[in-house]
Simulated scan of single mutants.
Amino acid sequence: MRAMVIEENGGPEVLRPSEVPDPVPGPGEVVVDVTARGVNFIDIYQRSGLYEVPLPFVPGMEAAGVVTAVGEGVEDLSAGQRVGWAMAPGAYAERAAVKASLVVPVPDGVSDEQAAALLLQGMTAHSLTHSVHPVSEGETVLVHAAAGGTGLLLTQLAKARGARVIGTVSTEAKERIAREAGADEVVRYTETPVAEAVRELTGGEGVAAVYDGVGRDTFDAGLASLRPRGVLVLFGQSSGPVAPVDPQRLNAAGSVYLTRPSLAHFVADRQELLGRAGDLFSLLAQGRLDVRIGGRYPLADAGRAHTDLASRRTSGKLLLV
């Protein structure tokens, strides 16, 4: 079968199509014919070596498709079933062997592309708004990169819980996209200092939570945007890692909290995984959640998809199909 194999860390050029043996399911695994794959920043981090992964490897942590073979001990999945997964490697291939414990059924009414576009970023957004900082009705939160794949889902889920959402974007076109997702206020960080705008929009109080997947470029502004005892939820670093932080800064900002969550710790239990995925699929099927697909690429063009995602000029979710 064909797969994109990374043999050394580096830029997008290290993503090379190769012929590799078809996978065989081991105990507790299923083999899936992959129809759609989500492209995520974690793929870039692993490709570049920022996140260490043993070489060589097939990247891709999120996909959807059809089960073709079931390993020993798998009882709740069967051949012919449509499924999706996140937080398991090997998606940049025509077929993948995946731990059954990480695979979720995809219901009728949700397409393979929608499932591949939703699971990793959707469950991330769900865990951030429902568990890391459970959004309360009437509070105001700040979402950085509000027109990105995770930002759009964060905005919608926070709005569904009754929050007022301030989003940050870079362009007028992205502002329109963020507002269509439900953002109440949008700050173009290329034109206006974010913290200053947030203080003005909140009457000087600041926001209850900042959801920041950008990292280095937005961290200081996010910290300065919090109300006393607010929460800075740093869940990514698309602009680069944040420099070490003196805890005294949290005191000076108003006894605020800083957390660096990972989705893996919020879907570690299979019932929690199925619950989060089920909530998202239900909202999607009901038309209460919109998944914006910002680009579709052939599998062989994975390098171009990485370049486009890293440019931060895209909006919505990028897929390899």
Rank of each mutant, 00 (worst) to 15 (best):
T129C: 15
S131M: 10
A147Q: 01
V74E: 06
V135K: 04
V53T: 15
V70N: 07
A86W: 02
V103I: 13
H144Y: 15
S131R: 15
S127Q: 12
E137H: 14
V83Q: 06
A100H: 05
Q81P: 02
T129V: 14
V141H: 03
A115G: 08
H144F: 11
V106L: 06
A79K: 08
A115N: 05
V83K: 06
Q81V: 05
S101I: 14
E72A: 13
V104F: 10
E72V: 03
V132S: 02
P105H: 09
V110G: 00
L50P: 00
A63R: 02
P107M: 14
A64H: 12
Q114G: 08
G84E: 08
M61T: 10
L153C: 01
H126C: 02
V106I: 11
L119Q: 05
L50K: 09
M87I: 09
V143N: 05
H133L: 12
E75N: 11
S78K: 14
T124G: 06
D112S: 15
R82W: 00
H144V: 08
A86P: 01
P54A: 15
Y92A: 08
M87S: 10
A69D: 13
T124R: 01
L50S: 10
R82A: 03
A117H: 04
G84Y: 04
V67H: 03
A86Y: 01
P105V: 07
S101R: 15
G122M: 02
D112N: 14
L142A: 03
L119G: 03
H133N: 11
D108R: 14
A96D: 10
V132A: 12
P107D: 11
V104S: 11
A100N: 13
M123T: 08
L153T: 01
A97V: 03
T124C: 07
V141E: 00
L55K: 14
S111I: 06
A64N: 11
E137C: 08
V132P: 02
P59Q: 12
P134G: 07
V110S: 01
T68D: 06
H133T: 09
M123P: 01
V70S: 03
T124P: 03
A125R: 00
S111T: 15
A116Y: 07
P54W: 12
L154P: 00
Y92D: 06
V106C: 10
W85A: 02
E62F: 02
V110M: 04
Y51S: 06
P89Q: 13
A146Y: 07
A86R: 03
T150H: 06
P56Y: 05
A100M: 07
L102T: 12
M123E: 11
L154T: 00
D76C: 04
T140S: 15
G122E: 04
P107G: 11
T124Y: 03
Q114C: 04
L128W: 02
P89D: 14
M61I: 14
